[in-house]
């Protein structure tokens, strides 16, 4: 195991420790300082290591450096706001931090050349799903915080699970990258990069409605079924409760 990998593992463990300390629970004075500090240190380690983990760029191309800086800024925004969304006590605040995560990941998608997906992420997630979340929060928890927002299930165990998961994912990636079978694919793909063309949307639409037409139809049907199902759940719940209360009155 190289030094970089050891440091990477250390960064993962530190990040998990920081998240463990930051999760809502009875906090001591030390934990309040240690948690964010450990997370920040691990974030810095990630930022330092991730470019070096796999390959050393031989030629330091200046045009790539600007892109790299933008990428790391966006990635830092995304990851920090994700951690904040998980650890905020107030669910409204975590929803708003999650909106920032969505914006960051949409920008990352845009950076990758996926224009349609970036806009669709903002419209569907931030515009529709997140607003629905906030609606339900306002309906169900109008007083803001509740006692169950201040406690956690097994914070240490879940932080360990997350760390192990990240470790496995990145380690698997590392072994497959150093295995030598991936770069062969790249050499054939890089020249015919279909995705970066100017008529991106037209090609994506042609692909979606050509090769994946049946899947699109199925997805449309699924949306329809989900709509009917959501209405049925709320309507049935309402009548069911009415019957229950009516029965209770008769009994009483």
């Amino acid at each position: 195991m190289s030094d970089n990998q050891t440091l990477f593992a250390a960064a993962t463990v530190l990040g998990a420790l920081g998240l463990w300390q930051m999760l809502p629970r009875a906090r001591s004075g030390i934990g309040r300082v240690v948690g964010p500090l450990a997370s920040l240190v691990s974030l810095g380690l990630f930022g330092y290591l991730a470019p070096r983990l796999m390959l050393d760029l031989n030629q330091s191309d200046t045009s790539m450096i600007a892109g790299q800086v933008i990428f790391w800024l966006l990635a830092a925004v995304t990851v920090i706001s994700a951690a904040a969304a998980v650890t905020m006590r107030s669910p409204v605040y975590s929803a708003i931090w999650f909106a920032l995560t969505l914006l960051g990941s949409a920008a990352l998608l845009m950076f990758q050349g996926a224009q349609f997906l970036a806009v669709a992420t903002i419209v569907v997630y931030a515009g529709a799903i997140l607003v629905t979340f906030l609606f339900v929060l306002m309906l169900a928890q109008p007083e803001g915080q509740s006692h169950y927002d201040r406690v956690c299930w097994e914070p240490l165990l879940s932080a360990c699970t997350g760390a192990v998961l990240i470790g496995i994912l990145t380690l698997a990636m590392h072994t497959s990258f150093t295995g030598g079978d991936v770069p062969v694919v790249a050499s054939t793909a890089a020249e015919s990069s279909d995705i970066l063309t100017t008529d991106h949307m037209a090609r994506l639409g042609a692909e979606l409605f050509g090769r994946h037409l049946i899947a699109v139809e199925v997805a449309g049907t699924l949306l329809m079924v989900a709509l009917v199902g959501a209405i049925a759940i709320t309507a049935h719940g309402r009548t069911g409760r009415r019957k229950e209360t009516a029965g209770g009155r008769r009994d009483g």
Binding site: A16, T101, A163, I166
Partner: peptide, 8 residues
């Protein structure tokens, strides 16, 4: 990282 933080 996003996946792991979400899991936690």
């Amino acid at each position: 990282l996003l996946f792991g933080i979400g899991t936690i």
